[in-house]
């Protein structure tokens, strides 16, 4: 019976992936609620879990494709492949409106431009300091320091190595976690108590899960404002990182 189920699951890899990832999300949300009191969003724990799974897969098989080198988990490769990923990420733009962005004033647009640039430059700078000197890897890690979405999208667009993409996810994950934890503590100092500041904050930070958890802990009413700015941040990041920023890096590097 178990052998039959195992065979079926291997033959229907994508469905198995939905089950595996679904269970991971459930466990992560449970950990988030019970062990961290909701301070650490389930999404961050789940992405971290994904990286751990990839590590386990790499160690046990000696392969390059994380957990998907184990045949039973091969479907995760399809679910997490570029096609579904790009499709789902484009979908997150739905609901954002340029009219709301215009209405929110020039400071939010400045926040968006500045937020992406600051994260990219500090991310690429850190990667350079740690010995990564090729433009594609630097651009990928810099984009990852913006968010763990923009990083892999940029990495795939530029043909970066899986190592660089993994680092970009890790950088974005660290950012999301810092934002989650720091936001409620800094809210008073930043006067994060009105829609306008929430949008400026969303534009500067850009990390969807970080902002969602940070504002949830600060004032849930502000969440839609911060998240709308985050949607624009993701779009702008996917637009400028594998283009303008990459070309600038190509120019700067010998």
């Amino acid at each position: 019976m178990i052998e039959l189920l195992r065979h079926t699951m291997e033959a229907n890899g994508l469905l198995t992936a939905f089950v595996v990832v679904g269970v991971m999300m459930w466990v992560s949300n449970w950990i988030s609620k019970t062990l961290t009191g909701g301070r650490l969003h389930g999404s961050a724990i789940a992405v971290f879990g994904g990286l751990i799974l990839a590590y386990v897969g790499g160690v046990t098989t000696g392969g390059k494709n994380g957990i998907t080198d184990i045949p039973f988990f091969a479907g995760i490769g399809l679910m997490g492949g570029a096609m579904f990923r790009d499709f789902a990420i484009v979908a997150t733009a739905f609901g954002a409106s340029f009219e709301d962005l215009k209405r929110s004033g020039v400071s939010v647009m400045i926040a968006l431009a500045l937020g992406i640039t600051v994260s990219f430059v500090s991310g690429a700078g850190a990667a350079y300091a740690f010995g990564y000197h090729d433009a594609v890897t630097l651009c990928t890690i810099g984009a990852g320091a913006a968010t763990y979405i923009v990083g892999p999208v940029t990495g795939t667009a530029l043909g970066a190595s899986s190592e660089a993409i993994a680092l970009s996810i890790a950088a974005g994950l660290v950012k999301a976690i810092v934002v989650m934890i720091a936001t409620p503590h800094l809210a008073k100092k930043l006067q994060l108590n009105n829609p306008h500041t929430a949008m400026v904050y969303g534009g500067m930070m850009g990390t969807h899960s970080g902002i969602a958890a940070g504002l949830q802990a600060t004032d849930p009413k502000l969440m839609p404002y911060g998240l709308m700015a985050a949607a624009f941040y993701t779009g702008l990041g996917c637009l400028v990182c594998p283009s303008i920023f990459y070309f600038i890096l190509l120019r700067l590097l010998p």
């Binding site: 990832v21 994904g50 994380g66 957990i67 998907t68 996810i169």
Partner: peptide, 11 residues
Amino acid sequence: PIVVAMSAKQN
């Protein structure tokens, strides 16, 4: 969830 799957297949 898709990002989680993507993370699980990296090197």
